[in-house]
Design a protein around this nucleic acid. Structure first.
Lengths: 201, 201
DNA sequence: ATTCAGATACCGACCGGTCGGTATGTAATG
DNA sequence: CATTACATACCGACCGGTCGGTATCTGAAT
C-alpha cells in the first residue's frame, strides 16, 4: 500500500469516510470490514488499530450525524420572531439532509431497526430523537405564549410535526426524483400550521 | 424431525411464519436460513424445496404485507359520507398495524431500507405506495368537490397526509410505550385537517 | 548530536465460525 | 413406479476479528 505512512488523523478520517460510503451502499451487515478497508486504501490492521470494532465505527458515524442534525436545528432556535415563520424556515434543514445524506439515510434507518431490538442501543438512538422532540415542543410553547399559535397541546403537536418531517424524509427516499423536496416540505408544514395558527386578521 | 410429514401447504406456511419472525427479530442478514428452518421445525431441504432462495421468501412476505395494507385501506374507500371523517377513520389502520405487528414492525422498516437500495425491490415497494398516494389524492379531490375541504392542491396534500402517517409509524417504533397510538394518529390527522377543512359553521 | 528505548502506526496472513446454497439420498403419495 | 416432499451431509466463499511482526516517530539520557 504505502499510501501516506504515518498520518493517523487522515487514516482515521479515510476509514470513517469509506465506512460511511460502504454502509450507505450495502447496509451494515453486507458492508464488510475488508470492503471498507479496500475503499479506504487501508489494511485491516490499521482499521482495528483505530477502532475497536465495526460497530464502533458505525456508532461514531451515527453520533456524528445526529450531532450535526442537532446543531443545524439549533441555528434556527431564534432565527425568526414569529414561531410559524421559524417552523417553516426549519424545513430547510431537510434540504441539507437530503443533499448530503440521501445515500446514507438507509443505513441509519437500518441501524434504527437493530437498535429497536437492543435496549441499550435503543436508548442511544432514541435520546437524540427525544431532544428534537423537546426542542420543537419548546418552540410551540413559545408560539402559544407569544400568541402566534392556538393553545394546542405542545407535546402532541410536536409529535405531529416530527412525524411529518420524518415521513417527508421517507417519501423523499422512496421517490427522490418526483418533486422538489424543499417546496413540498414547506407546503406540508404550512398546511399543518394552518391548523394551529391563531388567526388575528 | 418427523413432525407432520407430507403436508406441503402447512410446511410452506410454517416456513413463511418462521421467516417473518426471524426477520423481525434479527433483520434480514442476521436471520439465517438455518435459524428460520429451526424455528419452523423444518430442514433446509424443505426450505429450498418450497422456495428458490432466502430473498424469494423475503419478497413473498413483502408483497403479502403490501397487499394487506392496500386491501385494508380500500375498506375505507366509501366508509364515511364526509371526507374529513373518512380520513380520521383511516387512521385506525395504524391500530391494526401496531396491534398485530408490533413485533414485526422492524421488518417492515427493513422492507423499506432494502427497497431503498435495490432497484427491483424499490419498484415493487414504490408502486403500492403510489397507489396509496393516488387513493388519498382522490379522496381529497372528492372532499373539495363536496365542499368539505378547501381547494388545496390534492397531490401535494396527499403527500402530506401520507408523510404524516409514515412518520407516526416511525415514531411508534421509536417510542412504543409512550402513548396511545390511535389517539395520537387521530389527533395528528385532526390537526392537519384543521388546516384544509372548509369551515361552514 | 547521537543513541536508543518505548510508544504509536500500520501490515497482512491467518483463525474459527457462519453463511447461502447444493447434491444426493429416501420415504411417502397418487 | 414416477413424482412429490422432504432429510442429511457437505461445499466454498466470506465474515469479523486476532496476532506476530515491522516501520516510523518521540523524547529523554548520554
Amino acid at each position: 500500500m504505502a499510501h501516506n505512512h504515518r498520518n493517523p488523523d487522515e487514516t482515521r478520517a479515510r476509514i470513517l469516510t469509506a465506512a460511511q460510503e460502504s454502509f450507505g451502499a450495502l447496509g451494515y451487515d453486507r458492508a464488510s470490514v475488508a470492503e471498507i478497508c479496500r475503499r479506504a486504501a487501508v489494511t485491516k490492521g490499521a482499521f482495528y488499530h483505530h477502532f475497536e470494532s465495526k460497530q464502533a465505527v458505525f456508532l461514531q458515524l451515527l453520533e456524528a450525524w445526529l450531532d450535526d442534525m442537532d446543531q443545524r436545528l439549533r441555528t434556527f432556535e431564534l432565527s425568526c420572531a414569529l414561531v410559524p415563520d421559524q417552523l417553516i424556515a426549519m424545513t430547510t434543514v431537510l434540504d441539507h439532509v437530503l443533499d448530503t445524506a440521501t445515500e446514507q439515510l438507509p443505513i441509519y434507518l437500518e441501524y434504527l431497526t437493530q437498535a429497536l431490538r437492543d435496549a441499550e442501543l435503543r436508548q442511544l438512538t432514541v435520546r437524540p430523537y427525544d431532544r428534537f422532540h423537546r426542542r420543537i415542543a419548546d418552540i410551540i410553547r413559545r408560539g402559544i405564549e407569544q400568541g402566534s399559535l392556538r393553545p394546542v397541546p405542545p407535546e402532541a403537536t410536536a409529535s405531529s410535526v416530527l412525524a411529518l418531517v420524518m415521513g417527508l424524509l421517507l417519501e423523499a427516499m422512496l421517490a427522490p426524483d418526483s418533486i422538489d423536496m424543499s417546496a413540498a416540505a414547506a407546503q406540508s408544514m404550512r398546511v399543518l400550521l394552518a391548523g394551529i395558527i391563531r388567526e388575528n386578521d
